[in-house]
Amino acid sequence: MARTMASTRLTLPPLLIRFLVIAGLVGLWEIASGSGWINAFTAPAPSSVWKGFEKIVAEGGLGEAMAITFATALMSAAIGAVFGIASGYILHIWKAAGEAYTSWLAALASAPLVLLYPLFLVIFGRNMWTIVAMGALGCTPPIALKAKEGLDGVKPVLLNVGRTFNLTPKQQFWMIMFPASLPSIFTGIRIGLLFAIINVVGVEFLVNVGGLGQLIANLGDRFDYPQMYAGIFFVILVSVAFFWITEKLEKWLLSNT
């Protein structure tokens, strides 16, 4: 009997189980908050968080905040892509520089650069440029590394094919090197964009300027917990959705290579 039950349970698809787990947690929280097991003021029930969500959508400027955050992140990533791809290219063609600086770049890519934000705050002031700079700073090293990795990794035989067809250096780059390293460059930009979003939201939250980060910081300062929880879950959901979409997009774009 127990065995049959176990096997029925096991045949449930993972997606459904995931959904059930989330639904269960939300339900549990609702009951716990409603019955006073947990403090309903500091940890408001999901139902009041939902009301808070409706409120920040209607009057809290959630849409605008999201637009600001995304615009800032995209701008940072664009700056990071330009500098990153350019430096990746230089490090690829200038072998000695590549040998000298690539390990530095890798160290920068994994260093907690966002902690430098007080410096940028005094340079740019308490405004959007600090945030753009922090976003760009975070995403340039990974983009540069991935660009260099991609260019270095172009198979010599593909370059030889180009040589046997008498390609000009320009054709050699645009018809072979660039498309061959595109998958890696794209991965770099995707990772860079994620780093940019994390940095942008973080600095917005810290300096109280800009989009979603500022929204959450303000709601927290006002002790408006239902709306604050709603804002936090919204940020998490949006970044998950963004990650998911770019991941699928990358898979789709690279499905033939």
Partner: peptide, 14 residues
Amino acid sequence: VGMVFQEESAFPWR
């Protein structure tokens, strides 16, 4: 003079 190589040399993006 045309060459065919030992390694995979078809461009995967074409």
